[in-house]
Structures are given as structure tokens and as C-alpha cells.
Design a protein around this nucleic acid. Structure first.
Length: 641
RNA sequence: GCCGGUAUAGCUCAACGGUAGAGCAACGGUUUUGUAAACCGUAGGUUGUAGGUUCGAUUCCUAUUACCGGCUCCA
């Protein structure tokens, strides 16, 4: 007799039972769509036997865990199709990821997307056959022997990394056996809604020293509607691509032949760029920062001193003058700030010094790493260095983190992912100082009650860091802000302050950039707002459209008044139909279309059409100006008046 | 840097190996317009670059540069 607790509903059975049988016996709609189950919290296959008293939780195909199982199972399905079509291919790994899955294969000639149809058809065949997932347990030795024998070297390597004594499960689907922890869906008929999406190279174990494998990505869903919805969503996301919006709104462009990765700002783009800087400048001023500016080209020895030359030499723009001076275009602003700090004695009474610089830096990023405004070779940091005493560190980190999040909120970003990256393998500095620094960052986050994810080994070579991450339209992570503790530069640049004891002490240096790169932040902001920038940041707040030539004088009068009130509102007096003008300026994402015809001129009013709405609102000019002023002053999002 | 894809007019895209086309934008006219594209006309190209195959290359091949999607990287 076994007692099974399903959703607090205790059932008793005489004999052991598997998931399928249990579902049948329960005869309950809510478990009909299960793809797997949890036995006492442990994920298991539906075919697994339930032998003892336990809690059972069924995993619905639409739940997050259910989808992961479907996706991971679809990866297996793809691997079976691949093995059938290309028997010489070796299998690496095939996990579920957000929205889908991938599988890495070792194949002499790369896959191309043209082969997808063939692969998908093979997969569909297997779905029709309703092939079962089955598994067996093997000893480590037997597993190694088996996979060695069939030439699956990557599996052998993976098994070797499994601790001795641990159970090894080998799943079989069709005629392919694969090392896998499971669980899976019971059979392939659960895997109908998938599509292969792209092929890419990927290094074995994510290490660029290893062989590059062929990765095929796919997406998989519990039903047809969700699959279709996913592709619709992707299409929508493409419309928000900052590269497209930049073009449509005439913000900026690139000259790939002359300056790859370096933006050319057009007037409207520069306005946004400058506004972001003004905003930061004002906020930093209020927060007690001082602002400096340091040269963009300096002697290369500064970066040799800092240690960056050794680590990032080939990523620096540098050269030699006729007199043999070796210079470097700055890849970061730190040395400049340090030279200002070192200029003159500092007392403990001066600290903390919060020294900001909007510094334009150049880094020769790998060609394949460039990505519109999100990854560029020339960019501007809202950089600052906080020089403080060791006792001040925690307080400074807390303050800076709070400050950072408040900045994101100014732009309407509330979901910020915070990462704590700890000591990397290759690092400098005392282990004890690493301990203290990592703890300081973690403690600060705890005190602020913020959720964060720890990324072991991802810190900078000179110290741990907090990273603030926002997502682009396609859901990709981009680091914007960062707060880093530095235990390298103060020593290397011989920095000091005179303490209360009259002795020299080494200050602690905190690097921080909150928007990070103005360029990247702009890119993210464009994708987030779809180009509908809040009024305070919008380079063109409105445009006056005349319906006929008779009202031009009135339009010009309005235009002048807007100018006098410091609004960025233009007049489109071109000889075009109203329909045409409305379409053009709507596509340009101008917030307010101010329409003026005979009626308006006669009544001394304007008619408004707001971006994203078809409503027409008539009002007096002064009312509009008042409302607009309020919106701008409050820096509020949206265009509702 | 690595893997895959792409590169044609200012923009978005066509063109079986056989004289490179369309829409929009630009320019010149006509039109004076009431809420997402008025009408007519003109001009615009060494098909990213350099080689090769071919009687003939935008099309096939090689190299190269750039961009896009991944991987690696991101001080």
C-alpha cells in the first residue's frame, strides 16, 4: 500500500504505479496536459515508477518547467534527425534556453540554414512515429566505454567530469543514445510545435581556445498558437530595432568604410546625446560630484602603468609620432582622473572626492562584436571615480547604487538586473582585499534589499563589480551601469591622502558609470520607447501643419511663440496635403501634430493630434503651452496632456 | 577574431548566366488641400572592392571590406 499526495489530495494504491496510470486514475482535467512530474520535488518522467509514499506534482506543458522539458526534448529530437541525416556528426550538448533550445554538433562542413527544411522534415517524421524516450542507468565505466565505442568523444569528456559514484543516465530516442539527466516528455508526439531558427558557430564549453562547433537554434512551444505568437513578437521587436529607428528619425548614422563602429550624430541624435549628459550633469551636481575633463590622447606609458596595456594592448588605438613619442587614444578615463587627484596633496578631510568626467573613449573592439549603438568602438562614458577612505567604501557603494537606480527610473526603467561579478581566474591583488571588496558589494545590495545574481569569476582583473543590466527589444542583456572596486590603480599610481594620524594612506578607488556608454543607453532607450522619447528628451516635440497657404501667417506667429517659450516645434509649410504631412510626421514619431486651418485662425486656437492617437483636440495656444511646460518640467513619459 | 547569412539608385526591395527594374525620397510643373501616401514629368547605377570561370557575370568560384544573427570578448 502506498500513499500518494497529489495537490494535497491523498490517494492510496495497492501497488507501485507510474505517472500515466496515476493521471488515468485521477481522471482530472488539470493533469491531462502533463509532460512530466515531480516525485518529492524531483523532476521525473511520467513513465517512472512511484514505489513509495510521496508527494507528486504534475508538470503542465504550458508551465515554465513544462516548456523547458518540451524544449530540451525537442533538442534531442533534432539530434536524432541530425544523426539520421548526417551519421558522422558528433553530439556535444543540447539544452533548453529562453524560447527554445539549441544543440551543438561537431561536423566537418558547417550547416547552412538551407538545410533546415530537410532537418525539420526528418523531425516531423519522428514526431509522426511517436518515438518513445526511454532511459537506462549505467556505471561511469560502462558509459565511457559505450560512448567511446561509438565515437562520441564529447560525451566521454562530459562523463569524465561527473563525480565518481554518481548515477549516469543514458536516454534513448529512436536509435540514438545520449547522455542526459532528463526528464523528457514521454514521446515525440508531445513535440509538434517547433521551428529551427538559426545556425551559428559556438566554441566547445564556451572557450575560444576550443574547437568551434556548429550550433543550431530552434524554438519550441506547447501549442501552435504560442509558436505563431512568438514569431509575431519577433516581428514586433524588429520594428523597435534602434538601428531602424535611428534611420527613420534621422538621429545618426555610421560610415562603415571610414569609421566602423563610430557614430556620426545628426542634429536630432546629438540633441538626445546632449540631453542625456545634461541630465546626468545636473543629477551628479546635486549628488556632490565635481566634473573634470582630461585629454583624449596621452602618453601610452600611463596604460602601461595601469596594467591595461598588457591586458588590452591590441584593443587600443595607438601610434607613434615622428619624435618617437608613443601615444594612446584613451580607452578609459581612469588615468586622467588619477592625475588630477595626484595633483596636489589630499587630506582625509577632502574625501570622498567624487570626480566625474563625460569622457569619450575608443576601444578597438573585435569586428564581430560590433552591434549598432549597443557595441561601438568610440563612445562616451558618464564616468566617475570616487576616491575615498576604506571606512567610506560601503556607504559610497550604497549611495551610488541608489543613485544609479534612481537614474534608470528617470527613464522609466524599473526592471534592472543586478549582477555581482566576483574574482576572475587571472587577477591581481591580495586575496584578503578581494574578500573584503566582494563582501562590501554584496553587503551594500543586501542593505538596500535588492535582488542580485552572482557571476563567479566575471569580475575585472583588478576588482569585483556590480553590473546593471537592461534588455534590448530582442531580449538580449546589455550592461549599462557598473560600480567597481579597484585595488590596483591607487597602488600603481602611488596615490595617497594624509590621514588624521599625519601619515600617508592609500585611498580606495570606486569606478562607476551609470548610463555606462551614452551610445548604448541611447540604443536601449530607443528600443524601449520605440523612438517615442519623453518630451523633455525629444528633439522634436511637435510640428505645425498648415492646411492651406492662407493661414501661413498665423502658423508663423505660432511658431515664433513656441520658440519664445523654448519648445522644439517646427513648421511644415510644404506644399503637400494634410494627409501626407500627417503620415510623414507620424512615421517620424513627432509627439504633437499641431494642425492649423481657417477655423483655427479665425478662433485663435490650434487642433492637436497626438502620436499614437487619432483623436483631435482643439485648444487655446496658451493652454497647450502650459500643459506642455508641465510635462517637460516633470520629465514625465507619454504624451497625454 | 570564429561560424552562418547579407551587400543592387538616398531608402525599401526586384531581375533562370543574356541590354539592371519598381515604389518612396530628390528635382521641375500642376494642385490649396481638414486627420496616415494628390497628379504629371525629369534625373538618378562601373550591382561593396579585387581577381577568376564563361562568347557573355548582379547571378557561379576565390579573396577582401562592411553589416546582420550567434560564439568569444567587453578595462
Amino acid at each position: 500500500m502506498i500513499k500518494i499526495n497529489v495537490n494535497n489530495n491523498i490517494k492510496e494504491y495497492d501497488d507501485s504505479i507510474n505517472g500515466f496510470q496515476l493521471i488515468k486514475l485521477l481522471n482530472d482535467e488539470s493533469v491531462k496536459n502533463s509532460v512530466a512530474m515531480k516525485i518529492n520535488g524531483k523532476l521525473s518522467n511520467l513513465a517512472d515508477k512511484i514505489e513509495d509514499n510521496c508527494d507528486i506534482e504534475f508538470i503542465d506543458k504550458n508551465s515554465q518547467e513544462g516548456l523547458e522539458i518540451i524544449r530540451h526534448s525537442t533538442a534531442h529530437l533534432m539530434s536524432v534527425a541530425i544523426k539520421a541525416l548526417y551519421p558522422d556528426v558528433k553530439l556535444a550538448i543540447g539544452p533548453a534556453i529562453e524560447n527554445g533550445f539549441y544543440y551543438d554538433f561537431d561536423k566537418d562542413t558547417p550547416f547552412s540554414e538551407g538545410e533546415f527544411e530537410k532537418i525539420e522534415n526528418k523531425m516531423k517524421e519522428l514526431v509522426k512515429e511517436d518515438a518513445k524516450f526511454s532511459y537506462e542507468e549505467m556505471s561511469k565505466e560502462d558509459a565511457i566505454k559505450y560512448f567511446k565505442n561509438i565515437g562520441e568523444d564529447y560525451k566521454v569528456e562530459l562523463i569524465n567530469e561527473i563525480p565518481d559514484g554518481e548515477k549516469i543516465t543514458v536516454y534513448q530516442l529512436g536509435n540514438v543514445k545520449d547522455l542526459c539527466r532528463g526528464p523528457h516528455v514521454p514521446s515525440t508526439r508531445y513535440l509538434k510545435h517547433f521551428k529551427l531558427t538559426k545556425v551559428a558557430g559556438a566554441y566547445w564549453k564556451g572557450d575560444s581556445n576550443n574547437k568551434m562547433l556548429q550550433r543550431i537554434y530552434g524554438t519550441a512551444w506547447a501549442n501552435k498558437e504560442d509558436l505563431e505568437k512568438y514569431f509575431t513578437l519577433l516581428q514586433e521587436a524588429e520594428k523597435r530595432d534602434h538601428k531602424k529607428i535611428m534611420k527613420a528619425m534621422d538621429l545618426a548614422h555610421f560610415e562603415p568604410e571610414y569609421a566602423p563602429g563610430a557614430p556620426f550624430y545628426h542634429p536630432k541624435g546629438l540633441f538626445i546625446f546632449n540631453s542625456l549628459i545634461s541630465h546626468m550633469r545636473k543629477k551628479q551636481e546635486d549628488a556632490g560630484y565635481i566634473e573634470v575633463s582630461t585629454p583624449r590622447i596621452m602618453n601610452r606609458c600611463l596604460w602601461e602603468t595601469s596594467g591595461h596595456w598588457e591586458k588590452y594592448g591590441e584593443h587600443n588605438y595607438s601610434g607613434k609620432m615622428e619624435d618617437d613619442t608613443q601615444f594612446c587614444v584613451k580607452p578609459m578615463n581612469c588615468p586622467g582622473g588619477i592625475l588630477i587627484y595626484n595633483h596636489g596633496m589630499k587630506s582625509y578631510k577632502d574625501l570622498p572626492i567624487k570626480m566625474a568626467e563625460f569622457g569619450r573613449v575608443n576601444r578597438y573592439e573585435a569586428s564581430g562584436a560590433l552591434n549598432g549603438f549597443l557595441r561601438v568602438r568610440e563612445f562616451t562614458q558618464d564616468d566617475a571615480h570616487i576616491f575615498c577612505t576604506p571606512e567610506q567604501v560601503e556607504q559610497q557603494i550604497i549611495e551610488t547604487t541608489k543613485f544609479c537606480l534612481s537614474i534608470y527610473e528617470d527613464f522609466g526603467f524599473k526592471d534592472v538586473i543586478i549582477k555581482l561579478s566576483t574574482r576572475p581566474e587571472k587577477r591581481i591583488g591580495d586575496e584578503k582585499i578581494w574578500d573584503i571588496s566582494e563582501k562590501a558589494l554584496g553587503d551594500a545590495l543586501h542593505k538596500l534589499n535588492l535582488d542580485f545574481i552572482i557571476f563567479p569569476g566575471e569580475g575585472a582583473f583588478y576588482g569585483p563589480k556590480l553590473e546593471f543590466v537592461l534588455k534590448d527589444a530582442l531580449g538580449r542583456d546589455w550592461q549599462v551601469g557598473t560600480i567597481q572596486l579597484d585595488m590596483n590603480l591607487p597602488k600603481r599610481f602611488n596615490m595617497s591622502y594624509i590621514g588624521q594620524d599625519g601619515e600617508k594612506h592609500e585611498p580606495v578607488m570606486i569606478h562607476r558609470a551609470l548610463l555606462g556608454s551614452i551610445e548604448r543607453f541611447m540604443g536601449i532607450l530607443i528600443e524601449d520607447t520605440e523612438g517615442k522619447f519623453p518630451l523633455w528628451l525629444n528633439p522634436l516635440q511637435g510640428i505645425i501643419l498648415n492646411i492651406n497657404e492662407n493661414v501661413l501667417d498665423y502658423c508663423e506667429e505660432l511658431h515664433k511663440k513656441f520658440k519664445e517659450n523654448n519648445f522644439r516645434i517646427n513648421l511644415d509649410s510644404s506644399n503637400e496635403t494634410l494627409n501626407y504631412k500627417i503620415r510623414q510626421h507620424s512615421l517620424e514619431k513627432v509627439p504633437f501634430l499641431i494642425i492649423v486651418g481657417d477655423k483655427e485662425k479665425e478662433n485663435n486656437t490650434i487642433t492637436l493630434r497626438t502620436l499614437g492617437s487619432e483623436k483631435q483636440i482643439s485648444m487655446k495656444l496658451d493652454d497647450f503651452i502650459e500643459k506642455l511646460n508641465k510635462k517637460v518640467k516633470e520629465k514625465s513619459n507619454g504624451f497625454d496632456l
